[in-house]
């Protein structure tokens, strides 16, 4: 309790100053504030360092990479080169894999948003037998690990000719994105004021028109969070792509994963490759921070 007594004593001494907080606390905040700031700056640098290391490695020639660490760049900044990126742009395998990734991610995101909105709207505003029961089933599926589905879906896709196809990967991602999508959107749609929907209905809008003109626009924020979360989830996925994607033209995660096997000799390919694969997620991250945060906060249970 010495701190408390000390604070009281100093408070008595410093009575002249209008003290809202005990002087000791304010003193600690003053002096400790500097140390705290230094500490936080160090932590931030520490957190940035691994990424910066890869970035700087991607800007060095294979010979430099073999001879010395990326931190030597600070000693001789002249050594920076964009040759690795130039060669990567000519690397058809990696560039093609980026297209494959986009061809998987965009449809998988759109499908989850559309199908999830339809079901979310039905659960929120339509009357049908067993509605709550069905919704509970969907909520129950929220935490099902994708691992459970790998073998059965591989067999199923094999039987219908979807194994190792882009369509198969899209369907898998859509299905596993749906429980969260339905859950989030149903809760959001349910808060749309009833009067709004009834007014539209009175104006003669049909169910589909109600959905596209009223519900979807009002659901904007939730749909944005969901869409961004699903987009990043699919873009960054490796496991499902590893199993279900066409090994002839794999998405970027799989293409780079194959390179990792020779780690050490090919950092000049891996480092810029990893960076190129990160560009889209990072743009999305910086452009849609708020939506991303709410999406990640809500969806990390997956």
């Amino acid at each position: 309790m010495t701190t408390v007594e000390g604070a009281a004593a100093e408070g008595a001494v410093g009575r002249a100053v209008p003290a809202k907080r005990p002087l000791a606390t304010r003193l600690a905040a003053r002096t400790g504030g500097g140390a705290l700031r230094v500490f936080l700056v160090l932590v931030a640098l520490f957190w940035l360092m691994p990424t910066v290391g890869l970035l700087l490695s991607s800007l060095r020639s294979p010979q430099q990479i073999a001879e010395s660490g990326w931190w030597q760049v600070f000693a001789r900044p002249a050594g920076i080169t964009f040759d690795n990126y130039g060669r990567l742009l000519e690397n058809e395998k990696v560039m093609g894999s980026l297209l494959t990734t986009a061809a998987i991610t965009v449809p998988a995101t759109v499908l989850v948003v559309v199908i999830g909105s339809l079901a979310g709207y039905a659960f929120a505003w339509m009357d049908f037998p067993g509605r709550d029961g069905w919704f509970m089933v969907v909520v129950g599926l929220l935490v099902v690990p994708v691992q459970v589905a790998l073998i059965p879906v591989a067999k199923l896709f094999g039987a219908v000719g979807l194994f190792e196809t882009t369509a198969g990967v899209i369907l898998f991602h859509t299905a596993f994105g749906l429980p969260f999508a339905v859950f989030l959107l149903r809760n959001f749609f349910a808060e749309i004021p009833r009067e709004l929907l009834e007014a539209a209905r009175l104006d003669g809008a049909g169910e589909l028109r109600l959905f596209t003109r009223v519900v979807m626009p009002l659901g904007g924020p939730a749909i944005a969070s969901l869409g961004i979360f699903q987009f990043l989830w699919v873009w960054n996925d490796m496991l499902i792509a590893l199993i279900f994607a066409d090994s002839g033209s794999p998405p970027v995660t799989v293409a780079l994963q194959q390179e990792v096997r020779q780690f050490g000799n090919n950092i000049d390919v891996l480092a810029p490759g990893a960076f190129v694969s990160m560009v889209v997620p990072l743009i999305v991250f910086f452009a849609f921070q708020r939506q991303f945060v709410s999406g990640v906060m809500a969806g990390a249970v997956k």
């Binding site: 957190w47 780079l256 994963q257 480092a271 990893a274 990160m278």
Partner: peptide
């Protein structure tokens, strides 16, 4: 780092 893939983080 939450925004990047585990693959990229793995390479890093």
């Amino acid at each position: 780092p939450m925004a990047i893939s585990m693959l990229a983080a793995g390479i890093i």
